[in-house]
């Protein structure tokens, strides 16, 4: 059995005096899996994703991603970890509006200090792969929602991350654009990309995820694997 890419052990997260966002949660994700995290609002889905990305720290327990104890990293080490191991896709794309599509996509490689030629070649490859190469000189504001999310996915994949995190990737899209993104993520998973996606979109979970978990009040309420994929 291979080493899990994500290993969460007895993680709890409390904010102030309220109920825990995550309560004694344990979870492992294997390389190549596509895990869909479902649950109602306030169930702890985004908190879980933030823990895995090193954007937040658990109150108790440990989070290991790609062999790295993320919860023990300093801010600088956490940033390096994200650059090298993780790609993130957000519900509202979070593209920088004053940079072109190409510059947005190049950004993670530039933060990593990658060579200029290699980075541009990789960006061109991704833009071509995702069918948005004709927009490389455009600004994000001129693209459709689906196209913007493709740019966000290209940016997330720029440094060949071991793990792709997607937070409601179809949440801000119309039906057609949502279907495009759903198809894209499915293809990525089929190509071997490990994906963890937080979503309310059951269709997305059904089509893309090899495994689905459901959180309720910060606890694991369901953990199912697809029979065939």
């Amino acid at each position: 059995m291979s080493t899990p890419i994500i290993e969460i052990r007895d993680v709890s997260k409390r904010y102030d005096e309220g109920p825990p966002a995550l309560a004694d949660l344990s979870l492992t994700v294997e390389p190549g899996e596509a895990l869909a995290v479902l649950g109602p609002s306030g169930s702890g889905k985004s908190t879980l994703l933030n823990m895995i990305a090193g954007l937040d720290r658990p109150t108790e327990g440990g989070v290991t991603v790609a062999g790295v104890r993320v919860d023990e990293l300093s801010e600088a080490a956490s940033a390096r970890f994200r650059r090298e191991r993780v790609g993130m896709v957000f519900q509202f794309f979070n593209l920088l509006d004053d940079l072109t599509v190409l510059d947005n996509v190049l950004l993670p490689a530039q933060l990593l200090g990658a060579g200029r030629a290699a980075a541009r070649a990789r960006a061109a490859e991704l833009l071509d792969y995702l069918g948005i190469d004709r927009h490389s000189g455009a600004y994000p504001g001129r693209l459709s929602g689906g196209e913007r999310q493709r740019v966000a996915v290209a940016r997330a994949l720029m440094n060949r991350p071991a793990l792709l995190l997607a937070d409601e990737p179809t949440g801000a899209l119309d039906t057609a654009s949502g279907a495009e993104v759903r198809e894209l993520l499915t293809e990525l998973h089929a190509d071997g990309q490990t994906i963890l996606l937080v979503t309310h979109d059951l269709a997305l979970a059904d089509s893309c995820a090899s495994r689905t978990i459901e959180l309720v009040d910060g606890r694991l309420a369901r953990d199912e694997r697809a029979v065939t994929r």
């Binding site: 940033a79 650059r83 090298e84 979070n94 593209l95 920088l96 933060l111 990593l112």
Partner: peptide
């Protein structure tokens, strides 16, 4: 601040 958050999510270190 939101753009800063995006960049930090992409891996921008505090020093950067």
């Amino acid at each position: 601040v939101h753009d800063l958050g995006v960049m930090k999510a992409l891996g921008m270190a505090p020093r950067q």
